[in-house]
Design a protein around this nucleic acid. Structure first.
Lengths: 230, 230
DNA sequence: CGCGGCTTTGATGTTCATCAAGTAAAGTGG
DNA sequence: CCACTTTACTTGATGAACATCAAAGCCGCG
């Protein structure tokens, strides 16, 4: 982990998502307590049970939120991409963080003191509403994705994940898969072998193609159908 | 649906959960816009896609939040009990409600104008923090229960549900099951038949007993073990 | 260059959905 | 209040979906 120089983030493309309603003075408060931290791929950003003293958002890279069960198996709650406020949903309600966070690509996070955020919620009504709105959005997303997956079987789940990376993360039909087959399994509660078998089937059916580490979507519409139907 | 007389809810046992930080004037604002509405068992309280103009909390009874898929099958997101702020998590982030809500027991809800709540968030910092805190709690619960269930198989899931009613709702070892076997299936994404088979197995193993509509927990510790292990 | 982690395929068994069929209970309309 | 209809509950048989075990190839890295 590496703390970079804290350049002003007035120009940050994610600023308006959360800090749009702050005046200059309030904004400086945030900026002063703010740290940019860099994590190399594979590094853990936060551990289950650690105390909260700050809140994170993701500038660059990709992270996973996960929990390890008593059998030693990991279960991934979500994969998060730049612009996501990784801990916003949990930061106010509990003292200890409930999930592990790890970088699955080289990752840059911004860290803001929790006390500053709380103070702003108290004093700036618009900002408070903004936070409430954001939290609702995040909760909706997590719940909807968990809930939607529950009724699908493997093919549908895998299709959903491929589409997630294609539509939401890389915005391309061809990209390097950032997660291992095992991690995909941990995300959808399936065995690694079954993930592989399903991907092989997609390949056989000319829905996707693999070139080295890259996946290429050949039949996007079919993937969408599979992700919806089964 | 039946609107009862709007008696002051200063004495409401749930008041402190959300409205503890309001002064008398603010509190009257809430109280004036507040309606108590009664729903008979089986009645729908809110439909997917309806516009939000108010927010609900549950005074008495039991409700389910659910969605109907394109095959006509219902999937239950959560069962909610008195004191739960049923729509708090979603009310600020979207214009249209995403789930159906139905009473599974005779139910009394309190309805508060959304505009009043928003105004209070803007003007009362403590209240805003309180809302943020509550939202986090609710989100944590929904996510944790969804996430925890994902790795379990039928026995574990059913044990979890029996314990939910026993520990969280009725606080008794003997109670009337408020949901049908089918609804249990809809809650854990399992077929009705498998729910029944699992319950029969629990009965055979002397973990629970049935008397008419009532279920009696005979071996609480064993249920806890099953709910954790699998 | 050897070791460990990732990937892949095949064989086998378990878990669970589905279909079928019947009983019990609970609404519903005359 | 009773016949009728629907909904809930239950058990068994069958097959599909999926986990698990085993074995082997691949690749990156020290």
């Amino acid at each position: 982990m590496l703390i970079t120089e804290t350049s002003s983030c007035k120009a940050c493309i994610y600023r308006h998502l959360l800090f749009g309603s702050l005046n200059d003075e309030e904004y400086n408060l945030v900026n002063k307590s703010r740290k940019e931290i860099f994590f190399k791929k594979g590094k853990k950003i936060k551990l289950e049970g650690e105390k909260f003293t700050s809140f994170f958002y993701l500038r660059k890279g990709l992270v996973k939120l996960y929990k390890t069960d008593n059998m030693g198996k990991d279960h991934i709650l979500s994969i998060n991409k730049p612009g996501d406020f990784i801990t916003l949903l949990h930061v106010f309600s509990t003292d200890n963080y409930q999930y592990n966070i790890a970088a699955i690509e080289d990752t840059l996070v911004c860290e803001v003191e929790l006390s500053v955020l709380k103070e702003l919620i108290k004093t700036n009504g618009e900002f408070a509403l903004n936070i409430v709105f954001r939290m609702g959005k995040i909760a909706d997303n997590v719940i909807a994705s968990r809930f939607g997956q529950a009724k699908l079987q493997v093919k549908g789940k895998i299709a959903t994940i491929i589409l997630f990376f294609s539509d939401q993360v890389y915005r391309k039909k061809r990209f390097r898969m950032p997660v291992t087959r095992r991690e995909i399994g941990e995300l959808i509660s399936m065995s690694t072998e079954n993930v592989i078998r399903t991907l092989s089937e997609f390949k056989k059916d000319n829905i996707v193609k693999f070139e080295g580490k890259e996946i290429i979507i050949l039949d996007y519409n079919r993937l969408v159908m599979i992700s919806k139907a089964g």
